[in-house]
């Protein structure tokens, strides 16, 4: 008989550390330290919550989409986001979490979602700008996660990144079309860009010198690059795209620095970021209330389906109402 795992904790930890060091994947039911499990569940869950909450600002414009083709594209995009949320909740559940419990933590504020979705979508151009800037920033964050140490998360990320690359292109193509359209459309694109540029930079999180947990996360293969590295990468990629569109990014300090080989950019308003993360953003209460409302209003439906399934299972097993336990008719 082989020894029980619980008898040899040092060896379990060494095996785990070795897997990480060799850049191999941790899979469901592998032993992991409690802190790793908790951190991983929280990161995956918050990512899932972001996808689900993210359906709202974009879903806001489905019924008003100005052409039938744009409407179809937007419905499909929002549907994809629901799917991404489900893939991610599914990955979190392999670590022992339960989706309803994660939802409860979202609506009570104990778990968070990406702060970008606490901003309102005010015109149809916002749909395009979210595709271009917000999905663009999300991809910068997510592509490295395809090499996350946790297998189910890494695989979900590969699938999500593939689908989100279409979303980005759709958003950018909408903006291209608008910039070649009427004067009012061009003004709408510029206005949306002015409102979403800085919040998109905030998506990468606080500066490295204010992120003390980055070191541990990177040691575990949970995080692959620092916030500032990813933010710089996003700026470098996006500036030429803005030029191609013909929009101005709202940062007078943006300029190419040939010594660094990167774009210099202005200071992010970290006070605004902190306020939004703390719950005072323009849409925080609205987004959470909407999610909570849908979930609460749906309770009777979920219960009915569960009740029906139980009745059906009893019928299939040949149990009739009134039977006693030993099978005699009551």
């Amino acid at each position: 008989m082989t020894a029980l795992a619980e008898d040899r904790p040092d060896e379990l930890e060494a095996h785990f550390d070795d897997t990480i060091a060799r850049d191999r994947r941790i899979e469901p039911r592998d032993w992991v330290p409690d802190r790793y499990r908790a951190t991983m569940i929280r990161q995956i869950a918050q990512h899932a919550h972001s996808e689900i909450i993210g359906m709202q600002p974009e879903g806001n414009w489905i019924t008003r989409a100005p052409s039938l083709r744009r409407k179809a594209v937007l419905i499909a995009k929002v549907q994809d986001e629901a799917g991404h949320g489900m893939y991610l909740y599914s990955a979190a559940e392999t670590l022992g979490a339960d989706r309803a419990d994660l939802t409860a933590k979202l609506v009570s504020g104990r778990q968070k979602y990406s702060s970008i979705f606490n901003y309102p979508t005010l015109t149809y151009a916002d749909v395009g700008v979210i595709g271009w800037l917000v999905d663009g920033a999300a991809i910068c964050n997510q592509v490295p996660l395809c090499r996350s140490s946790y297998g189910p998360y890494a695989r979900a990320m590969v699938r999500i990144c593939k689908e989100e690359s279409f979303h980005q292109r759709q958003g950018y193509e909408l903006l291209m079309t608008m910039m070649r359209g009427s004067a009012a459309q061009r003004a709408m694109v510029q206005d949306a860009t002015d409102r979403f540029w800085w919040p998109s930079l905030m998506m990468f999180g606080p500066p490295d010198d204010q992120s003390p947990n980055t070191a541990q996360s990177m040691a575990w293969g949970v995080k692959r690059h620092t916030n500032d590295e990813l933010r710089q990468r996003f700026v470098d990629m996006t500036v030429p795209q803005a030029g191609k569109l013909g929009v101005t990014l709202p940062d007078p300090d943006l300029s190419w620095n040939s010594e660094r080989g990167h774009y210099d950019f202005g200071a992010v308003d970290w006070d605004e970021f902190t306020a939004v993360v703390k719950g005072h953003g323009p849409c925080n209460a609205q987004r959470v209330a909407h999610r909570k409302g849908a979930h609460d209003d749906g309770a009777w439906v979920r219960e009915a389906a569960a009740a029906h399934a139980a009745k059906q299972a009893a019928r299939d097993a040949g149990i009739k109402p009134g039977d006693t336990l030993d099978g005699e008719a009551g």
Partner: peptide, 27 residues
């Protein structure tokens, strides 16, 4: 489409969005 983000469970979001898309395609 007005039901999206208001359904009782996430799986119903994909199902109803599919139906809305199919009908939009027919339209």
């Amino acid at each position: 489409q007005q039901w999206m983000t208001r359904l009782p469970e996430l799986e119903e979001e994909t199902a109803v969005a599919n139906i809305a898309l199919d009908l939009l395609g027919q339209a």
